[in-house]
Simulated scan of single mutants.
Amino acid sequence: MGMPIHAVTLDEAVDRVFDSLAEGRGGTVLTPNIDILRQYRRSPELRRMFERSELVVTDGMPLVVALRIQRTPVPGQITGTDMLRALAAGAGARGRSIMLAGGRPGEAERAADRLRQVSPGLRAETYPCFVRPETMAAELAALSRRLVAAAPDIVFIGLPFASQTAVMSALRPALPGTWFVGVGSSFDFVNGDRSRPPELVRRLCLEWAWRLTSQPWLWRRYLVHGVPTTARLAVDALRLRWRRDGSPTTSAGRPALP
């Protein structure tokens, strides 16, 4: 399906961010899963966003499995929550600042408190918001003013994916030395409001079923949209494995999902 992925470990991803910050350069981190892959296939604008992104890691385990099937493996799954915790710990150790933007009222503040407990001395600010399409311009303007005033090194965007990418595209020009990391609902995991499934469930690519037990209203996302996308991904990965001996990569050495 053409989505570029960086074949990095979590530690390597974290090092890339802080090495870039040391050189005065910012960037974006995208953490795609099956639902994001479905959106990627349908949106030329989103495909351009992925091509421009400095770091794309595999949040969804089906993507990890597909890359293994087509013989362009990545080291493993890296979720938005993994990136949030690891980068916050790294920021605390290096004297860098972070901002948690998004989430329901109180969510970002609680997550920041949890992260400070793990990394004493961490400089963490918060900006609770929910960027809605009908109020996008005003909310982006307010968020931009807050970010420019705070000038954080890393911004974690706890918003739905479409809003994440809108924020990144709109605000990066004003903060070229800042990293923007899309983390979706990761504040919930940091706060303990939701938990990850057991490792076996993740390895079997059944995290969607685990999530449906606590969030049944997501049935359309997983059953109507997710299952066909996953099936097509598996078929395409098998077809690519049979047809090619080499690894389909971009010029930057990134495995590409079929």
Rank of each mutant, 00 (worst) to 15 (best):
residue 209 A to M: 13
residue 204 L to R: 13
residue 189 F to A: 01
residue 213 T to N: 11
residue 173 P to I: 05
residue 189 F to G: 05
residue 217 W to P: 03
residue 160 P to G: 13
residue 177 G to H: 04
residue 174 A to G: 06
residue 177 G to T: 03
residue 240 L to N: 12
residue 215 Q to E: 14
residue 219 W to A: 13
residue 200 L to R: 13
residue 244 R to S: 15
residue 237 A to W: 11
residue 193 D to Y: 12
residue 228 P to C: 12
residue 158 G to W: 00
residue 209 A to L: 15
residue 230 T to L: 14
residue 189 F to L: 08
residue 236 D to C: 15
residue 209 A to G: 11
residue 217 W to Q: 14
residue 194 R to N: 05
residue 245 D to Q: 14
residue 218 L to A: 10
residue 205 C to V: 03
residue 201 V to L: 06
residue 207 E to F: 13
residue 196 R to E: 07
residue 187 F to G: 05
residue 204 L to H: 08
residue 219 W to R: 14
residue 160 P to F: 04
residue 211 R to N: 08
residue 240 L to C: 11
residue 228 P to Y: 12
residue 249 T to Q: 15
residue 242 W to E: 09
residue 200 L to W: 14
residue 200 L to C: 04
residue 198 P to C: 04
residue 177 G to V: 03
residue 162 A to D: 03
residue 205 C to S: 10
residue 173 P to R: 04
residue 200 L to K: 06
residue 198 P to S: 01
residue 213 T to Y: 14
residue 221 R to P: 08
residue 249 T to M: 11
residue 183 V to K: 06
residue 249 T to S: 06
residue 199 E to D: 12
residue 171 L to R: 02
residue 175 L to S: 01
residue 227 V to L: 14
residue 159 L to N: 03
residue 212 L to K: 05
residue 240 L to R: 15
residue 182 G to D: 09
residue 191 N to Q: 06
residue 173 P to F: 04
residue 199 E to I: 14
residue 173 P to Q: 06
residue 199 E to Y: 08
residue 230 T to D: 14
residue 185 S to K: 07
residue 168 M to D: 02
residue 191 N to M: 02
residue 201 V to Q: 01
residue 206 L to D: 00
residue 200 L to E: 02
residue 203 R to C: 05
residue 180 F to K: 02
residue 225 H to T: 04
residue 197 P to L: 08
residue 210 W to H: 12
residue 232 R to S: 13
residue 230 T to Q: 15
residue 217 W to Y: 13
residue 186 S to P: 12
residue 229 T to W: 15
residue 180 F to R: 02
residue 171 L to D: 02
residue 225 H to F: 15
residue 249 T to C: 07
residue 237 A to D: 05
residue 165 T to D: 06
residue 188 D to T: 03
residue 190 V to C: 06
residue 204 L to Q: 13
residue 236 D to K: 12
residue 248 P to C: 07
residue 188 D to K: 09
residue 213 T to F: 14
residue 235 V to L: 14
residue 168 M to F: 10
residue 199 E to C: 08
residue 248 P to D: 10
residue 158 G to F: 00
residue 182 G to E: 04
residue 242 W to I: 12
residue 239 R to P: 10
residue 247 S to I: 02
residue 171 L to A: 06
residue 176 P to N: 00
residue 163 S to P: 00
residue 192 G to N: 08
residue 164 Q to S: 05
residue 217 W to N: 12
residue 177 G to Q: 04
residue 221 R to Q: 12
residue 186 S to L: 06
residue 194 R to W: 02
residue 207 E to T: 01
residue 173 P to L: 04
residue 215 Q to I: 09
residue 245 D to V: 10
residue 203 R to N: 04
residue 192 G to T: 10
residue 227 V to G: 11
residue 183 V to S: 02
residue 190 V to T: 07
residue 208 W to V: 02
residue 248 P to T: 09
residue 189 F to I: 07
residue 162 A to H: 05
residue 208 W to A: 00
residue 245 D to E: 12
